[in-house]
Amino acid sequence: MSKVLVVTSGKGGVGKTTTTAALGAAIAQSGSSVCVVDFDVGLRNLDLVMGAERRVVYDLINVVNGDAKLAQALIRDKRLDKLALLPASQTRDKDALTDAGVARVMEELREKFDWVICDSPAGIERGATLAMRHADMAVVVTNPEVSSVRDSDRIIGLLDSKTIKAEKGETLEKHLILTRYDPNRADRGDMLKVEDVLEILSIPLLAIIPESEEVLRASNVGCPVTLNNPLSAPARAYADAVRRLQGEAVPMSVPSDRKSFLGKFFTRRAA
């Protein structure tokens, strides 16, 4: 049985695309087939984070409109043969996506892959609701910050009302990824606590991803962080998330990039 997962947040720039690429690569590494789908029409980014920007020929809109076959638009990852990307278009109007067309493409993706991961655009408008429409489960990406948590609450409301699962009266599995978490700021009491966010949003925690320069480094070279540096703190946190998604019980922790004692001493001082 294939699973459709939407990565969503409401607020922009919180780490949806980073998360989509990282989860996609980690799932592919675990041996399941995955397609990551960019629903951010007009602002496509996933191809960049995946390092596939120069291989985009056809996109989601072409397939939805029937101008290209799904197989023509899919880009197989060069590093992981179980991983594929369905890119978004850079220029076209997002109204070009029809409900029926998207439904058809999602059905076709379900037949081909074990996992389909939809990278949602920011906001709570049609683009975001279209990305979540066919999902079996959702990963809500949140930063430990007032506006992000508030927007996540709005998105959870939409997940519970605008998805096909919700309309059928079924429950859509929702998971929280708390990302850009900074243990130093948490120590100082200047960041919302994990418990606070969980209490407010009341959905189960899938992972805590630390703030890390490894994420920027990975996006610079166009490689999902889980693939670029699997031993880095964010990569380990995302890998744990995938094991949990696959049903394994993995104790929750906030991985940290290992530093020498001296290095730690100095960063603490500088903070």
Binding site: E145, V146, R154, D196
Partner: peptide
């Protein structure tokens, strides 16, 4: 204020969200 700004953030959030949930829930 050495307790940090997080408790204030938490309180503000709880208020905003309670209001917004009531609003949306009600209107729908």
């Amino acid at each position: 204020s050495r307790r940090g700004s997080a408790p204030v953030a938490r309180e503000r959030l709880q208020l905003i969200i309670a209001h917004e949930r009531a609003d949306h829930g009600r209107s729908d």
